[in-house]
Amino acid sequence: MKEITPQEVENLLNDGKELNIIDVREVDEVAAGKIPGAVNIPLGLVEFRMNELDKSKEYVMVCRSGGRSGRATQFLEGQGYNVTNMTDGMLEWEGKTE
């Protein structure tokens, strides 16, 4: 499983790189703040909404601490998607939120 740190994600965004970020936390968790531009697909719905994702794109999976996003990453990898898990999740995120 590919992994990226919250600091690396923030650096890429600050450098103007366009990232496809999927936040797999629950709706109420995301309401408290998410990475700008992140799309919320709660972990329990990933299997049912993966058709919304494009296999030709790369995705960064995010959750609170890295566990749920890790499970989503493993599942989507198995389905042929190009995904990377953001380790340590939003607990370690120091960048902007919306």
Score class of each variant (00 low, 15 high):
64 R>K: 15
14 N>Q: 15
67 G>M: 11
82 N>C: 01
46 V>Q: 05
37 G>D: 13
25 R>D: 13
54 D>W: 09
18 E>S: 15
37 G>H: 11
24 V>K: 12
87 T>I: 14
9 V>F: 11
54 D>L: 05
82 N>V: 10
48 F>Q: 13
60 V>Y: 15
30 V>N: 02
82 N>I: 11
87 T>W: 04
32 A>D: 15
9 V>M: 09
46 V>T: 01
53 L>F: 14
2 K>G: 11
65 S>L: 06
70 G>M: 05
86 M>Y: 10
32 A>C: 01
94 E>L: 11
23 D>I: 01
4 I>W: 01
96 K>R: 07
95 G>R: 11
90 M>K: 01
69 S>D: 10
46 V>W: 07
94 E>K: 15
66 G>E: 03
45 L>I: 07
36 P>H: 10
17 K>H: 10
13 L>T: 05
73 T>C: 13
8 E>Y: 07
85 N>V: 05
60 V>M: 14
35 I>W: 04
83 V>P: 12
91 L>N: 14
38 A>P: 08
29 E>M: 05
25 R>Y: 13
68 R>G: 04
36 P>G: 08
44 G>I: 02
43 L>S: 07
79 Q>K: 14
92 E>G: 00
27 V>M: 14
11 N>M: 02
39 V>M: 10
54 D>P: 09
77 E>N: 09
89 G>H: 10
77 E>P: 00
80 G>W: 04
52 E>S: 05
96 K>G: 00
24 V>L: 12
63 C>V: 06
51 N>C: 03
64 R>A: 14
31 A>H: 02
10 E>R: 15
5 T>Y: 09
63 C>Q: 07
91 L>W: 12
6 P>V: 02
93 W>S: 00
38 A>G: 06
31 A>D: 06
84 T>E: 03
86 M>Q: 03
66 G>P: 01
1 M>G: 11
96 K>E: 15
54 D>K: 05
97 T>S: 10
8 E>M: 12
41 I>A: 12
11 N>D: 14
75 F>E: 03
81 Y>H: 04
31 A>G: 05
79 Q>I: 00
84 T>D: 03
98 E>L: 07
12 L>F: 11
31 A>W: 07
65 S>T: 15
45 L>V: 03
89 G>I: 10
60 V>P: 00
92 E>N: 05
91 L>H: 11
10 E>P: 04
59 Y>W: 08
73 T>F: 04
37 G>V: 09
72 A>F: 09
11 N>P: 00
78 G>F: 08
46 V>H: 05
23 D>N: 01
24 V>I: 14
50 M>P: 08
52 E>R: 03
24 V>Y: 12
63 C>T: 06
3 E>R: 13
59 Y>C: 01
22 I>T: 04
83 V>G: 06
90 M>N: 00
84 T>M: 13
7 Q>C: 00
77 E>T: 12
19 L>A: 10
38 A>N: 03
85 N>R: 05
32 A>V: 15
6 P>H: 06
6 P>T: 08
83 V>E: 02
35 I>H: 02
16 G>N: 07
41 I>C: 12
21 I>D: 06
65 S>I: 11
96 K>L: 10
29 E>D: 14
33 G>Q: 04
93 W>R: 00
89 G>P: 08
19 L>V: 12
85 N>K: 06
82 N>H: 12
